[in-house]
Design a protein around this nucleic acid. Structure first.
Lengths: 345, 345
DNA sequence: TTCGAAATTGTAACCGATTGCATAAATTTT
DNA sequence: AAAATTTATGCAATCGGTTACAATTTCGAA
C-alpha cells in the first residue's frame, strides 16, 4: 500500500562505506568533515531521495522547530494579516506553525494552550479570547521557560513579551478628531472592557472628552460583542433616540461593526457624517469601500505579526536582551476619511 | 535555564515497579492490561504531570498526526472560513494543522509542498495558486500514497479528491439572472482562465448568454488579478466607454472586487443597478454592507473546509470507498440583492 | 493435585538522527 | 625518523514510546 521505504542516513552510509555519524555530520556542514566527503554525501543523499526524519531529530534534540499560535478568531481580516506577517518571518527561519483558535472562548483557548504545550512547540504567539479571565493555562509554558509573545489582546502577566499598539492614544485621537469636528455628544461602542485593547481605548476616549471640555456620560458607552447583529441593534437604538439624547459622533472599536452600523443608520435616514460622524478601528479594506468612506485607526496587522514573530525568534535564539523585553509598541495612526468630516448644518 | 526534566513512561514505570511496556499499554487502553493496573498508571501519570512525547511516538509509528494545508492566500474571508471549517473537524479528530501559503505563486506553492512532504504530514489539503501550471510538486505525495484533498482551485490530476462547487452552474445562474433582469450587454470580469474555477464560470456565462439569445463578445470578458487596483482600473475603463459599447450588467468572480468596482462606478456617476447591474461571487460579509447590497453567489467556505477535512480523515482511516472518491460538490446558490435588480429607466 | 488456557506483565529490539569520546590517518615539528 | 599536532572518521549511547514474542501468573477444569 505504502510507497517504498524511506532513505535514512544508514542507507547513505552503507552506499558510501561510511558511518552514519559521518553522514549525519556531512549533511549539516559540520566543520570536522572533509569537504570532499561532504560533497559525496550531499550528492548521494540527493540521488537517493533522502529526506531527514524530523522526529528522530526532534527526539534527539528536544526541539520541534515549531511555533504555536493561538488566535481568538480566524475569520478576521486583522488576524489574517497578523498570520501572514508571522508566516513570512517564521518560514524564512525554518519554523513551522501550528494554529489553534479559541472562537473567543476561554475554554477553547485553554484547551489549545494545552494541546500546543503537549506538542512541545518551541514558542507561542497568542492573542486572548474575549472572556479569558485567568492565565493559568499558560503556566506550563512559564515553568518550562518556553517563550510566549502576546499580541493585540494582552494581559498583565509577569511572563512573556507583549506586542501592541498604543490603544489609549488611538482612542484619544479618534475621539479628539470627532470633538474637533464639532461633535458634542460622542458615543463609544466597544467590547468587553476586561480586555486591555478596549479598556485602553475607553481611557483615551475619556481623556479626549475631558480635554475638549465635554462631559462623560456612561450612557454613551455601549458594550457588546461587535457582531453584525449587535451593530444593527445599536444603530436602531440610536435611530430611535430623541434628538437631544442622540449622539452626533460615534467611535466604534472595529471597522466591520462600524460599517454595518453606518449602513443601518443610513437605511434609517440618519445622515453620515452630517447627523452622526463615525470613526472606526483597524483600517480594514471595508473602510475604503463603504460610502461614505470610513475614518479609522490604521492598525498594521501584518507588521504586528512580523514583530511578534521576530521577537519570538530572538528569544528562541537566546538573545538575552530579547528575553527581558516587556512590551513592543507598533505605530498606529488616524486615517481621516469622509465618515467623520462633520460639517454642521 | 530550562524547567525540570520531562516525565517519561520510564519514570512512571520506576515509581510503580512496572515495566515501561506496561505503562505504555496502560496509557492507551490496551486490552491486555489489568484494569486496576491501568488505573494506577493513569493516576500516577496525572500526578507526575506526564505528557507523552509525540516525537518518540511518531518516530516509532511512522505517523505524524499532522495535516498540511496549502492555501493561495491567507488574507481572504473565503479562505479564513475554509480554514475554520478544516480546523473544526481536524481538531476534533486530534490532528494538528501546519499551514503554508503560496501568495498565489507557483514557486511558493511548490516550496510549501516540499516542506510539508519533508515534515511528513499524514495528508494534505490544498488550493492551487493563480499561476500554478504543473502538479509535479505533488508527485512525492503520490509516490508515497499520502492522501491529498484539493479544494476550490483544483486541476485534473489523476490523484486525490476534489472538493468544489459547480462553478459552471454558478456562472450560469449569475449570468442568467442578469439576463432575466433585462441586461443585454453583460460583461464578465474574472481571473486566470487556466484555473478551473474561472474557466468553469466563464463556460456557464457563455451558456447563459446563448440560452438567452445574447451574443458572446470577447471584448466583454476581462481577465485580471482581481486586486483593488484592478477593480478601480476596470471601473474607470467602463465609465469611459461610450454608451452603445458600455455593458449594462457585470458578473465579477469575487465580492471584494465587485464591491470596489461598484464603489468606483458610483463615484463616476454610473448608477447601480440602473445603469449597470452587478453580481459578485462568494457572499462575503462585504456584500451585505455595500450600498446597494450585492447580489452574489453563496459559496459556503466553512462547509467546504469541513467536507475537505472529513474526506481526508476518512482516507487516513483507510476507508477504501473514500480513497476512490473523485469529486465532492458543495451546494452553492444565487443570493439576489439590490445590486442586480435592474429596473430599466 | 495437576494441567492447560487465559490473562498479565516483562524483555528487548526497533524507529533515525545526534554527539561525546576514542581512534586512525595525515601533516607538521623537532 | 620519531614525536606532536591537526584533521577525519567511527563507536556506541541516547532521545522515549511501541510491540512481537517470551515469561509468568491466575484460575477453573479434570
Amino acid at each position: 500500500m505504502l510507497g517504498k521505504k524511506d532513505i535514512t542516513i544508514y542507507d547513505i552510509a552503507r552506499v558510501l562505506g561510511l558511518s552514519p555519524a559521518t553522514v549525519s555530520r556531512g549533511l549539516k556542514d559540520h566543520p570536522a568533515i572533509n569537504i570532499k566527503t561532504r560533497k559525496r554525501i550531499m550528492d548521494t543523499a540527493r540521488e537517493m531521495g533522502y529526506r531527514s526524519n524530523s522526529f528522530a531529530s526532534n527526539l534527539r534534540m528536544q526541539k520541534t522547530n515549531t511555533i504555536g499560535i493561538i488566535v481568538h478568531e480566524l475569520k478576521s481580516q486583522f488576524i489574517s494579516s497578523v498570520l501572514a506577517g508571522i508566516e513570512k518571518v517564521t518560514t524564512e527561519a525554518g519554523y513551522d506553525l501550528i494554529i489553534g483558535h479559541s472562537s473567543e472562548t476561554w475554554r477553547k483557548e485553554a484547551s489549545n494552550a494545552h494541546n500546543l504545550f503537549h506538542k512541545r512547540v518551541d514558542g507561542l504567539i497568542a492573542s486572548l479570547a474575549f472572556d479569558t479571565r485567568d492565565m493559568d493555562h499558560y503556566d506550563p509554558f512559564v515553568q518550562k521557560n518556553i517563550p510566549i509573545v502576546f499580541f493585540d489582546r494582552v494581559e498583565d502577566f509577569a511572563y512573556g513579551t507583549r506586542v501592541v499598539i498604543d490603544n489609549n492614544k488611538a482612542g484619544y485621537e479618534a475621539t479628539a478628531h470627532l470633538a474637533a469636528q464639532g461633535c458634542r455628544r460622542i458615543a463609544h461602542i466597544t467590547a468587553n472592557l476586561a480586555r486591555n485593547v478596549y479598556a485602553d481605548r475607553l481611557k483615551g476616549y475619556q481623556q479626549a472628552l475631558a480635554d475638549f471640555g465635554l462631559s462623560y456620560d456612561a450612557e454613551l458607552v455601549i458594550v457588546n460583542d461587535l457582531s453584525e447583529a449587535a451593530a444593527i441593534r445599536a444603530a436602531r437604538q440610536i435611530i430611535a433616540m430623541p434628538q437631544p439624547q442622540r449622539p452626533d459622533g460615534v467611535f466604534a472599536t472595529n471597522d466591520f461593526f462600524a460599517a454595518v452600523f453606518l449602513q443601518t443608520l443610513k437605511e434609517g435616514d440618519v445622515r453620515v457624517p452630517e447627523d452622526i460622524a463615525i470613526v472606526g478601528f483597524n483600517n480594514d479594506a471595508i473602510a475604503r469601500i463603504i460610502q461614505p468612506k470610513l475614518t479609522t485607526i490604521n492598525y498594521p496587522g501584518e507588521e504586528m505579526g512580523e514583530q511578534a514573530a521576530r521577537s519570538l525568534l530572538e528569544q528562541l535564539a537566546g538573545l538575552s536582551a530579547a528575553r527581558t523585553t516587556d512590551t513592543i509598541i507598533i505605530r498606529s495612526e488616524l486615517i481621516i476619511r469622509d465618515s467623520s468630516l462633520h460639517r454642521k448644518v
